[in-house]
Design a protein around this nucleic acid. Structure first.
Lengths: 159, 159
DNA sequence: GTCAAGTATATCGTGCGCGATATGAATTCA
DNA sequence: TGAATTCATATCGCGCACGATATACTTGAC
C-alpha cells in the first residue's frame, strides 16, 4: 500500500488486465453451454446480433462487434458452412454482402434465454453489479473508439 | 414480472458482450503504445507479472493469467526469442521451467508508467470507476474459476 | 465515356488461446 | 525396487483477431 502512486503498477490492479482475464474466463464458461449447439462464443454473439436484426451487411456486423471485416468475413463463412446463415450480394450495391438467418439459425434462438440465465448465475453477481459493469465498459469502449478516429473526424484547429 | 424477464436478450445489454468488446478495444488501444517497444499486449502483461516477481514458472504465470500452459509456453518462447526473458529448467524439479528477465526485459519496465497513464487517460473514466470495474470483474473471475475447479478447491489444500 | 478516388469485402501472414494429446520427471505405493 | 500414477511442460490442430494488401464495385470530375 503505497500512497504516492495513484496509478497502479501491478497487473492485478489494472482494469486492462481485469478485462483481459475476465474476457477469457467468460469465453471458457460459455464453451460447455455452446458446445451442444456446435457454437463458439463469437459465432453465438454474431447470431445474437442477427436475432435482434436480420439481414445485416458484413460491415454492419463488424461495426456492432467493434471488429475488423477481416475477422467477420471468415466468421460468417463458418456460420454459413453450418447452414445457420446465408450470404447474399446486395442488388443495389454489389460490393455489400448481406447476411441473413436460415431456419436452423433462427431455431437456435430458443436456447438463448437458458444460456443467459446460466451465465448470470455462474458469475455469482447481482444484476445491478453486472449492469454497472456494462455501463462503465460501454463508456470506455465509446471513448477508446472515439479517440482512435478523432484525428480525422474532429477538427484539429486547437493547436 | 418474473426474474427471467429481468435478464437481457440483446447482445448490447449483456455483460459478456460488453467485456468481449471492451477487451478487444483495450488491446487495440495498447497496440500503438507497445509497437515502438516491439511488444504485444499478452507479451507486455507477461513482462508486467515478471517485473512484480522475477523467476516464475510457466505454471505460475499461467495461473496468474488464468490461461493454459499451452498458451503461455509459446508466448514465453517468443519473449525469449526477443531476448527479454530466459527459460531455465528447475534444478530441484526438472519438470518445471522458470522464466526470468534479462537486462533488456528489465529495461522495458521504465516505459510502463507512461503507458499506464496513457491508457487511463484514453478511457476517459474516473479512477473510481475503473477501480469499481476491477473489483466486480475480479469477483466474477473468482466465481467462474471456482465453479470450474470446485472439486479440487474443496479439500486439496488440507493435505 | 474515361480516369481517379473512395468504398465494401476478401485474402494473407502472424500472434494468440484453447482442448486434446504426448513426453518425461517426480511421487506413490505395492 | 519397480510399476502405476500424477504432475509440468510441450506439441498439434483449429478458431479467432488484427494489419496490410488485393479486388471489385461505385461515385465523382472532366
Amino acid at each position: 500500500m503505497t500512497d504516492h502512486a495513484a496509478l497502479p503498477t501491478r497487473a492485478q490492479d489494472m482494469f486492462c488486465f481485469a478485462t483481459y482475464v475476465a474476457s477469457h474466463c467468460i469465453n471458457r464458461a460459455y464453451a460447455p453451454l455452446l458446445k451442444p449447439l456446435g457454437l463458439t462464443y463469437p459465432k453465438y454473439i454474431t447470431l445474437t446480433l442477427l436475432w435482434d436484426k436480420d439481414w445485416q451487411s458484413i460491415g454492419e456486423l463488424a461495426s456492432h462487434l467493434k471488429m475488423e471485416t477481416s475477422t467477420v468475413t471468415p466468421l460468417v463463412k463458418r456460420l454459413e458452412a453450418m447452414a445457420h446463415v446465408r450470404r447474399q450480394r446486395g442488388t443495389q450495391d454489389e460490393r455489400q454482402v448481406f447476411v441473413h438467418l436460415t431456419a436452423s439459425g433462427k431455431k437456435l434462438q430458443k436456447s438463448a434465454p437458458q444460456i443467459t440465465a446460466c451465465m448470470v448465475e455462474a458469475t455469482g453477481l447481482e444484476l445491478s453489479e453486472l449492469d454497472s459493469v456494462v455501463a462503465t465498459l460501454g463508456k470506455l469502449v465509446k471513448n477508446l473508439t472515439n479517440t482512435r478516429n478523432s484525428k480525422e473526424a474532429a477538427g484539429d484547429k486547437s493547436r
